[in-house]
Amino acid sequence: MCDSCHCGEAAEATIAIPGQPHGHQHQTRKIVVEHELLAQNDHQGEANRQFFAEQKILALNLVSSPGSGKTSILERTLKTLGPEIATSVIEGDQQTMRDAERISAAGAPVVQVNTGAGCHLDAEMIRRALARLPPKPHSLLFIENVGNLVCPALFDLGEHAKVAIISVTEGEDKPQKYPHMFRAASLCLLNKIDLLPHLDFDLELCKTLARQVNPRLTFLELSAKSGEGFAAWLQWLRDTFNASHCH
């Protein structure tokens, strides 16, 4: 048996000619495969990313369980940041225009994507939403994903960063139960801290567990209801916006 290729030839003695180390010829054939290794979504995600870079748009993908407060955070953010930085929003929900109506009332251009049976936004939906919006150059774009911590982690929309939101009414162990999402996120917002006095939620434990899945994750605590902690979040947005050369 030939050791180097498992071709089955008896190899008690090795007799070889330089350049033909096996001592026998292998008839190889080349097969042209040309298989694209990126999934369709990744291609479109890359195209979206290129569009954002060209237009100097900072795109942030907001992900959380249903009801963690994504829309409420956006409403309050728009009030303060709206006059400073041109901001638009893409809303993703399975059904209804409700979140888009809330954003519109808060004064920002918005498009609603209804995914129907789908449980996440994909890059192609974002491409179509961008064409409908379209966001201004040198602007900030929030993408509120469908409330779901599983598959939105796997679909690149071309965003600059994912912002994961946990509310203190959820379990501290969310990051460990949904590690892909917390690994994919750059920033984690801990929302509804106005409720902390009524709950046993351990903020530090939650952060420790999240750091175990993603040591580089940064945290901000806030309340979309009281506005507590918003100054730091708004500053993070300004800093990220400026650092991305979108100003």
Binding site: C7, H26, Q27, R29, K30, V33, E34, E36, L37, L38
Partner: peptide, 9 residues
């Protein structure tokens, strides 16, 4: 990002 070809025997 493409698998261009393979060589087989």
């Amino acid at each position: 990002l493409r698998l261009r070809s393979i060589n087989v025997e």
